[in-house]
Amino acid sequence: MKGALLVNLGSPNSTSVKDVKNYLDEFLMDKRVIDTPYLIRAFVVKGIILNTRPKKSAEAYKKIWWPEGSPLIVLSERLHKKVQKNSTIPVELAMRYGNPSIKSGIEKLAAKGVTEIFLIPLYPQFAMATTETITVLASKIVEKDFPSIKITDVPAFYNEPDYIEVLSNSIQQHLELIKPDHLLFSYHGVPERHIKKSDITKSHCKIDGSCCNTPSPAHEFCYRHQCYQTTKNVAEKLNLKEGSYSTSFQSRLGRDPWLQPYTDQTIDDFAKNGIKNLAVVTPAFVSDCLETLEEIGMEAKHSFEENGGENFSTIPCLNDNEEWANTLCNWINNWAK
């Protein structure tokens, strides 16, 4: 019997400092998130970050928390229900960090007699710290506790025509209302070394102005290429004029070089250079979360206005959009045939 497992990032159980600390511990101690040797990672995370960041992060979560709970969890649950409604096979929801866990999702499917799982990381672009960490953990859990279950992974879908169609339609609906001077595609940032580590050719990725535009097998696992390609595909679909849109990367951590241009600096520069009406879309996420609601929707908005901007709009993620739910359901049903 076949089943599907949707997996998103995850969230603290509550906005308490204790729960946020537990969540950050699990998240940042993942060697595919902070990819340093264990002892260094433990020193940085447990010795420094977890003694300073949880309180600040808890305050940030409080700003965006809903009465029903974490927006990311609530929106993922709504999406799950819509997908399951029209799916021909059982579908469960899990989070890479926090609850419900990937193991619990697999257990629920196994209890229904599922022996083959369609694993869908809810990330359009591949990255070590997103897609890869989900597929690796799911494989380890199955190998250890469910050896009779087979897993089929969904590859990054940044270039899938039906995904681009859904994303473009969602963006267009908001652009018609907002009519911005400029549209910024802001993707979650990753360290530059992650890009080079994921290069299966070990030579193609230079992180310069040309490698992402030069065809290569490396692009199958290149987050930077896939982000720029997502922007390009949507821009073509919406007939956006050259110069009316751009791409940037947010949420850097530490002093190592991360993908650039940085979103915060880009937004401030737009305001200082006379852009009065700015819209930001965040296509690295399919569900609104702390990074989209607080970092972009609040912090970036405030900074834009402080630097002379007037109208700052955030375009929601796909969330539980009906067209998006139907697309996921179609992928699942086609696989299950």
Rank of each mutant, 00 (worst) to 15 (best):
I134T: 05
E92L: 11
T130H: 14
S57P: 06
R96S: 04
K140A: 14
Y123G: 06
Q125F: 07
G69W: 04
H80G: 06
W65K: 11
G98L: 03
A127D: 08
K63T: 08
V114F: 04
T133V: 14
A110F: 12
S87N: 02
K63S: 14
G105N: 07
E107T: 14
L109W: 01
P67E: 15
E59A: 13
T52R: 15
V136G: 05
V83G: 03
K103L: 01
I106H: 03
S76G: 08
T135Q: 14
A58W: 06
N99L: 12
L137S: 11
I102R: 00
G105Y: 10
K82L: 10
I149P: 01
L122R: 00
T52Y: 15
S101M: 10
T88S: 04
I106W: 02
A60K: 12
V83N: 04
I64L: 11
S139H: 12
H80T: 13
L109S: 03
F126I: 02
H80K: 10
I89G: 00
Q84G: 06
V136D: 09
D145W: 09
M95L: 11
N51H: 12
K85Y: 10
D145H: 15
G105P: 08
H80Y: 13
E132S: 14
W66K: 14
L119V: 02
L122T: 03
E92K: 13
L93I: 10
L122Q: 02
I117N: 01
P90D: 08
Q125E: 15
I106P: 00
I149H: 04
S76C: 07
P147L: 05
I64Y: 05
H80W: 12
L79T: 04
F118D: 06
V114G: 04
A111P: 11
K81I: 13
S87R: 03
